[in-house]
Design a protein around this nucleic acid. Structure first.
Length: 569
RNA sequence: CGGGGCAUAGCGCAGUUUGGUAGCGCACCUGGUUUGGGACCAGGGGGUCGGGGGUUCGAAUCCCUCUGCCCCGACCA
């Protein structure tokens, strides 16, 4: 491909709206343009990268036994009503009506559609197991689209659904997909880590997320340097720290004027934050609940939802808190609540002695509080967020922390959807059973953005060879010098002939412009042909991820390029 | 959904306070000089100043209203 013909308009200036590296660089380098908030056009370079990622995914899905299908994006409301998610999914679901006023939605995920398909055509155990997948656009009306392709409203996903006879079959399918995902991201040349994850609103028993490691990632993970343990902090279990043993003292109310935050109260009373009890109120459907954690800890809302099942879960409104405590937030505590509400407490609270908590009276806190003596807790359990420096639940070694971008997730769904939608099969004994399902997603467009987040420098993108839009760019320093131009042309033809994807920068631009664009676009290998070719018959080869270039003969160039390409496969 | 901000040429911005008929840099076109890390000179094209309504002799500028976009938070298979 000649650069002069390529539709890749690069920009010198960064669009004002771009926040993160992948967004800035993909826009600047001419890969994507925004159409509306969270919706992007993929231009030729992006399309090539997406195709490469998709090809790798297809190969691995097929290898694992998957069959590709294409499912509808426009989905009828009926099946969503049947699964119960039409009302649960909320505003995230893009809804629309047809001319007859019938309800539809744009698919954010395809459990309903695929289950509807399979229930029509699968009836016998002889047809199982089955794995179907698709790669196409999905839609979620995000409250706040951001970070370019990382959180869009329209995005490309691969999703595979597995259908098995029983749990053991699901276990096998799940493992196949786990392995396939590992192969996919390895082949994409990314540094990633599978972590244990929450299965969230999609339901199901077990789940792993595949995280591309990048400082800009939205997800925080912990992993063990010794054993294989790795988890999203959302679900990482915490062990209670030992609280100091003390002789319980008499409960006492203290004046704490205008001290509403943990830090303020701790400083004012001269106590460490770990001596305070943090009391938070949540709205769980129609019920208000109180949650207690040590003052220096953060509550983990995912864990709370694990003990208090509900559809809507959020921080309680101020008036609800007042109803429960008779007091403004800032001085609330578990002692003497107005209303009889459930109090969940983190395990660490149990052993606290002579603690501090709000008195449910403005400008007052209790000191020398002893849980169990001064108030009663409905349930003690692990409710806090894991912190830096805590131990591995498997082997006790101190965990490492990292940030990641979630590019894939695998779920064991069980029979949640097959049961709701009556997708059943008949076994050898003539017994009807629900099909056991799993679902497995990869964010294709997000993977492209994550690759950029992980692989870039100040000058631009540094594509892993496997997913680069082209592997090589040839830069003839002058297009008017026939000796240089002819050499470039010959190299171009020879590389193309061996299956290497090459861009020839044939533009009548200064060398500096071509170098800047080459770095920005991120071709793994750049070959420059200039004076040194005329003088010494040497070409310059530079790998995008290395600082130095080297001068070599043309024959070597071809060998180096071929080798680099093959090494990456 | 709460809070804040922005909307002027393809991109980045000034002009709005104090109304007088739209400008700068980059990009683009023409010609010339240049040519190894985003060149220089000269000339040129491109704007319903987000939409609608109002005030005024006159509105990018003041008022009302709608829409879009961005940031922080909350939320997030």
């Amino acid at each position: 491909m000649y650069f002069s013909k390529l539709y890749a308009p690069t920009l010198r200036e960064i669009p004002a709206e771009a926040e993160v590296a992948s967004h800035k660089l993909l826009v600047r380098a001419g890969y994507i343009r925004k159409s509306s908030s969270g919706v992007y056009t993929y231009m030729p370079l992006a399309q090539r990268v997406l195709q490469k990622i998709s090809t790798i995914i297809r190969e691995e899905m097929n290898k694992a036994g998957g069959q590709e299908v294409m499912l509808p994006i426009i989905q009828p409301a009926e099946i969503w009503l049947e699964s119960g998610r039409w009302n649960v999914y909320g505003k995230e679901l893009f809804r629309l009506k047809d001319r007859h006023d019938r309800d539809f939605c744009l698919g954010p995920t395809h459990e309903e559609v695929i289950t509807d398909l399979v229930r029509m055509d699968v009836s016998s155990y002889r047809q199982l197991p089955l794995m179907l997948y698709q790669i196409q656009n999905k839609y979620r009306d995000e409250r706040r689209p951001r970070f370019g392709l990382l959180r869009g409203r329209e995005f490309i996903m691969k999703d595979l659904y597995s259908f098995d006879r029983e749990e053991s079959g699901l276990e096998e399918s799940y493992q196949k997909m786990y392995d396939a995902y590992t192969a996919v991201f390895t082949r994409c040349g990314l540094e990633f880590r599978p972590v244990e994850a929450d299965s969230g609103a999609i339901g199901g028993s077990s789940s792993h997320e595949f995280m591309v490691i990048a400082d800009s990632g939205e997800a925080a993970i912990v992993y063990c340097p010794e054993c294989s343990y790795a988890a999203n902090v959302e679900i990482a279990p915490c062990y209670p720290a030992k609280n100091e043993e003390e002789t319980p003292l008499l409960l006492e109310k203290k004046l704490t004027p205008n001290k509403t935050s943990i830090d303020d109260v701790a400083t004012y009373l001269g106590e460490p934050a770990s001596k305070l009890i943090k009391t938070l109120f949540f709205q769980a459907d129609d019920e208000v609940i109180a949650v207690l954690v040590r003052g220096d800890r953060t509550v983990n809302e995912i864990k709370i939802q694990g003990v208090q099942a509900c559809v809507v879960f959020e921080m309680a409104a101020a008036e609800k808190i007042k109803e429960a405590t008779g007091c403004e937030p800032g001085y609330v505590g578990p002692i003497g609540l107005k209303k009889d509400i459930k109090i969940y407490a983190d395990e660490e609270i149990k052993t606290m002695v002579n603690a501090v908590c709000g008195a449910n009276e403005s400008n007052h806190h209790w000191v020398n509080v002893v849980p169990g003596r001064d108030f009663t807790v409905s349930e003690y359990t692990d409710l806090r967020l894991i912190e830096e420096g805590e131990s591995c639940p498997k082997c006790g070694v101190v965990l490492n922390t990292a940030r990641g971008i979630e590019v894939g997730q695998v779920f064991k769904l069980g029979t949640k959807y097959s049961n709701a939608l009556k997708a059943t099969y008949v076994d050898e004994k003539g017994q009807e059973n629900d099909i056991v399902m799993g679902c497995y997603g990869i964010g294709v467009s997000r993977t492209m953005a994550a690759a950029v987040e992980q692989n870039h420098d100040d000058n631009g993108i540094i594509w892993p060879v496997q997913i680069a839009p082209y592997q090589v760019v040839i830069v003839p320093v002058s297009t008017s010098d026939q000796q240089i131009w002819q050499a470039a042309l010959l190299l171009y033809q020879e590389l193309t002939a061996v299956g290497i994807e090459v861009i020839m920068d044939d533009r009548d631009e200064r060398a500096g412009v071509k170098f800047k664009d080459a770095d920005l676009i991120g071709y793994p290998i750049r070959v420059t042909i200039g004076k040194r070719y005329i003088e010494e018959n040497k070409m310059e080869i530079k790998k995008r991820w290395e600082k130095e270039s080297s001068l070599v003969a043309k024959e070597e160039i071809i060998e180096i390029v071929k080798k680099t390409w093959q090494d990456s496969l």
